[in-house]
Amino acid sequence: MNIPKKWVGRGVALVTGGSAIATVVLVLVVIGIVVQGGWGHLTRDFLLGSPEQGMTKGGIFPAIFGTFLLVTLMSLAGVPVGTITAIYLNEYVGQQSKAGRAIRFAVNTLAGIPAIVFGLFGLGFFINFVGGGADKVLYGGALHWGQPNILWASLTMALLTLPVVIVSVEEAIKTVPRELREGSLALGATRLETIWKVVLPQSMTGILTGAILAISRGAGEVAPILFTGAAYFLPNLPDGLTDQFMELGYHIYIMSTQSVDVEATKPIQFATTLVLLILTFTLNFSAIFLRWHLRGRALR
C-alpha cells in the first residue's frame, strides 16, 4: 500500500479547505435564513409596539427596551470594576508576582464558567442571600428585593462579562508606553496621578472596546437572566430596579417554546432574531474597529 505523497497533500488540502469553507457557508446560511424570514416583518410598528394576542401579533419594543436597560446597568456595574482590576493587575502588581498570577487565574476561570452557572449563582447570591437578607432587615420579611428583578439580572450579567472587560482594558493599558509613565513620575506625580492623568486617558479606546464587547456578549446571553430577572410577558416597561423586564434573547426562547401557537409566532421569531443579530453584529464590529484603531496607535 503506497499512496503517493502528492495525493496525501491534496487530500489534506481538500479536508482543511472544505472545513474552512463550511464555516463561511454556515454563517451565510444562518444570516440568510434569518434575514429572509424576518426582513419583511421589520416594520416601525414591530420595533415600537408591544406583543399582542399571545405574541402572535404586535411588536417587541419591551424586549428591546429591556435589553438596552439590562446592558446599560450591566456596564455601569461591570466596566468600572473591570477597569480597576485591569489597572491593579498592570500598575500595582508585578507580572510574575503571586498576587498577579492568582488574579489572572481567577479571571480565566471566571471566563470559563458556563453561563447557566452564573444564573444559578445570581439566584442564590443576589436574590436569596443579598435580596432576601435586605428584605428581612428592611421590610420585616416582606418580598421586595428578594425576587428576580432588573438589578440582580444586570449584576449577574456584569459578573459574566467581567473577564471580557478586564482583558480588553489590560490590553489597552499595556500599549501606553513606559516612557510616558516615567515622564509623569519624574515630575513628582504619584502613581495614582500618573494613572489618572496619563494612563487612563490613553486607554479610553480600550475601555470603550471592553465595554462594547461586554455589551455584545451580554446582549446575546439568556441563561444568566433566566432565574434572575427576565419576564415572560409584561404589559408595562420596568420603571424601577425592583421590576422585572423582557429581553430579546429570552423573548425568542419563550416564543419558540412556550407560545400557544408556535407556528403563528414564526415571522415574529425571525424578525426578533434579526434584531438581536443586528444589535450584536453592530456592537462587535464597532469593537473590532476600535481595536484596530488602538493597535494602529500602539505600532506608531
Binding site: 515630575l187 513628582g188 492623568k197
Partner: peptide, 27 residues
C-alpha cells in the same frame, strides 16, 4: 520634584504644549 529628569527618548504627553508644561505644576 527636587531632582528632575530628562529622558533619552523625548516623551511629551499626548497633550497640548501648554498642558505638557503645566502638568507638573498642576499635579
Amino acid at each position: 520634584r527636587k531632582v528632575g529628569m530628562i529622558f533619552q527618548k523625548s516623551n511629551p504627553f499626548p497633550k497640548s504644549i501648554f498642558e505638557n508644561v503645566a502638568y507638573g505644576p498642576r499635579v
